[in-house]
Amino acid sequence: MSHKSGASGSYTLSRKAKWFSSWNSYLFVLPALVFMVIFIGFPLIYNLIMSFQNVNVYNLSGKHDFIGFANYMKSLKDPVFYTALQNSVVFTVLSLFFQFTIGFALALFFNLKFPGRNLFRSLMLLAWMLPVVISGTVFQWMMSGDFGVINYFLQTLGIIDHPINWLSEGSTALLGTVVANIWIGIPFNMIILLSGLQGLPDHLYEAAKLDGANRLVQFRHITLPLMRPTILVLLILGIINTFKVFDLIFIMTSGGPVTSSTVLPIYAYQMSFTTLEFSQGASVSMIMFLILIVISIVYLRMSSKEEVH
């Protein structure tokens, strides 16, 4: 599409050729498009349709009736839905905040030149490459109240005087999963920010140094503004990814105790596969989808403004 935006002065192509070249470029997108339609579009629409029907265990393989917004109303009337929504927001905000700040700090650190930098940078990525099943289980062990290593350390250091059941206490279960998720997410944040940092032009910093700007001023007035697009992309990806987290929480607490760590994906899963109310589960996932769409639109608006600047 870029060939058009810069071509305002040179309309030498005939209309037909133009039509062809623009459709030609769509042809290149076609394989990806077909893939997306089959593996993303189709399930999405299937889910949308199901959320307006009454699919449950009795009629799963039979006929389904359209029942309008009844599933949505039922979900919105369920107090557990709001607990899950609140938990999702807390989980996402806390995870992102710490993933991002720690990731940024590490990115700035690894942007310095020092021996062994590449080795440590690759080692950092390990956390991200580990399957979630493994990191989730390890965190579950570490946070265990009876034999967990975290309690052991805190007790040895005298910070707490009796063991805390991190994952089986309503007040700490969600925080426990947040901590694990932060650990998993830091490397991703770091790598994206680091690649952004390495693309920044050196001459700006040299000029600033000549003008007597210290590190902090450089960071505030050069690094941050130039990194804005990268940060935006990272945060929006982060919101979407974190909002969808299911496996980690499912492994660590399965949403419990009671509902204290139930986030929306867990709630939707339980609707569909524990209580076998498929269409109500579908309605919850559609609500999640809507929330993420709104966030994405805000992002697209912001980034298109960015381009204009």
Partner: peptide, 13 residues
């Protein structure tokens, strides 16, 4: 059982 400490609270996990 849990309140008196005879059973671990961790049984829920």
């Amino acid at each position: 059982m849990v309140k008196n400490g005879y059973m671990s609270k961790e049984v829920i996990n």
